[in-house]
């Protein structure tokens, strides 16, 4: 295998993918913090957002109107998921909840596939609304796609806002407490429904942001949209350390950045080896640092958000 050169453009692109994956990791980590549940259907929330953009594009809606619709659909679907699935199953074992999220994931994929087949007669739909973002601009002699810049800025802003919200507001403090010790938090009068609902809502907002960014990167939406990204991010979250929000986020960023760099490093006829190389690295990391790449040494599971 000959390693191709990794140039500045590839590095910048990898940073952009890392930023999007970091956001997805935050969405997964927020819900995991309060529910102890890896929501496998998180990718399908993003897929639903992408399809919303696709239909909006087909109806010739303006960019802003499309994005608002995308947010409305994704956030609405998140809340429906919480009310219809998570809340009734919350007292069941983690395995039951996990399997339920698989079910929701496959359900949403199937609904998407059937709908798009029926309406379009094809497997996927193009999205032109946010396609402008895939155009390149030249920054300091490097060709950078606009979506990469937007991804980096949006991810930094979102993470900054989230940090403020968790650190400075009452509901943020309550979420951190619930993530550390849910029973004690409830004994103090903190409403389980409120903190879980808020975590699901925040994760939904982030899923909508990711839907816009991923659609701009890949402006063709199919029922398996974001599925592979979701698997990468899940692995990244575990590699980083799922017990803490910031380590999970770093893990998501790292896997996005690494896959971008490895993709560029592999000769163009051998990019099919990307998952093999990446997951081999993941195994090595987990063997060396089972608690997570970024988890503090000797870390226990004290604070999760």
């Amino acid at each position: 295998m000959i390693v191709a050169s990794v140039d500045a453009q590839a590095l910048v692109d990898a940073l952009g993918l890392g930023a999007v994956y970091a956001l997805m990791a935050v969405g997964i980590g927020l819900v995991f913090g309060v529910l102890r549940l890896v929501n496998f259907a998180y990718g399908q929330l993003i897929m639903a957002g992408a399809f919303t953009l696709a239909y909006a594009s087909r109806a010739n809606w303006s960019t802003w109107k499309s994005i608002v619709a995308c947010f409305a659909v994704v956030i609405g679907l998140s809340l429906v998921m919480e009310l219809a699935v998570f809340r009734p199953l919350r007292t069941q074992s983690p395995a039951v909840m996990l399997v339920a999220t698989f079910a929701v994931s496959f359900l949403l994929q199937s609904v998407a596939l059937l709908t798009v087949l029926k309406v379009q007669g094809q497997l996927g739909m193009p999205v032109s609304t946010v396609a402008r973002l895939s155009q390149a601009v030249t920054v300091w002699g490097v060709d950078v796609r606009k979506v990469t810049i937007v991804s980096l800025v949006v991810a930094a802003l979102s993470l900054g806002l989230l940090a403020l919200l968790l650190g400075r507001t009452t509901v943020g403090l309550q979420m951190r407490a619930a993530a550390a010790d849910f029973t004690t938090a409830r004994l103090l009068g903190i409403s389980a429904n409120r903190v879980i609902g808020f975590a699901v809502l925040l994760a939904g907002v982030i899923a909508a942001v990711v839907a816009v960014l991923l659609t701009a990167r890949t402006p063709y939406v199919q029922s398996d949209f974001a599925l592979h990204d979701m698997i990468y991010v899940l692995v990244g979250v575990v590699v980083g350390g799922i017990d803490r929000l910031w380590t999970a986020t770093l893990g998501g960023f790292t896997i996005g950045f690494a896959s971008g760099v490895i993709y560029a490093a592999l000769p163009s006829d051998q990019t099919a080896y990307l998952p093999s190389v990446l997951f081999a690295l993941v195994i090595v990391v987990l063997l060396a640092r089972p608690a997570g790449l970024f988890a503090p040494r000797g870390a226990s599971t004290m604070e999760r958000v």
């Binding site: 403090l173 407490a177 550390a180």
Partner: peptide, 11 residues
């Protein structure tokens, strides 16, 4: 006691 070890005393 069940205090939240990772949060500050004031929190």
């Amino acid at each position: 006691r069940r205090i939240f070890a990772g949060l500050t005393v004031e929190e």
